[in-house]
Design a protein around this nucleic acid. Sequence first.
DNA 1: ATGGCTGAGCTACTCAGA
Length: 258
Amino acid sequence: MKIISWNVNSVRARITNILDYIQTSKPDILLLQEIKTQDESFPYEDFKKIGFESHVNGQKSYNGVAIISKVKVANVKKNFINDELKQSRIIKGEIHINKKKINIINVYVPNGNPIETEKYDYKKKWLDKFILNIKKELDKNSNILIAGDFNIIPEENDVYDFKRYENDALGKLEIRKKFRELLNLGFKDTYRFINKNKVEYTFWDYFAGSWQKNYGMRIDHFILSNNILENIKSININKKPRSKTKPSDHTPIELIIN
DNA sequence: ATGGCTGAGCTACTCAGA
């Protein structure tokens, strides 16, 4: 089974790129973030035509997440945490891989910049609630796959110039510690688990030629609970979509799990 | 080294992103 996570930066502005990408990359499940549209204007039909059902937690203009799937997704929930700002940042569902029931949690973690504002506090509180609820979730089902845009640079080699991000909401130690706290519940950052020292990114700014200069960062992640690690076949950051015309600023990360 | 891109909503310009 191929599961892909991609922050598309607007599903409607990107629909052609997304459909082209599905044709070549052939996911079974596509987890989207920043769809930037409410449920009623989501392009359900475009995905239905090519055999995918869509589960959407949308929001006007900002945020929004969706699960696009060829396989049946059960028990879809949009209220995994109580979001104080009522932003649409999580969608959860259940799938089966072999005989394991796996909870899939698709997240778009708040950015948190600038750090001296309430936006940073919102990110910290959001992560605290998320970690607490994941802890509770583990008591019910220990097969958990969390994927999405975490807006967290896990380690210094996950960004082109760490010095520029050590006081940023994506790179601050306080935030990276929360990421470690999540992993310490019994998860692995799958990309780093498979690739011990490889330097690759999932995001490049639109401006200042960041893509051309490879000024990027690795902030999109697959976080898998320890007892499904044995099911991993491969994980790959696919840079192609970032090189296309009208690209998202993020590129997809692709997991094959059996 | 910040916001020089980009998108949404709306129709001039702000907000948000990371």
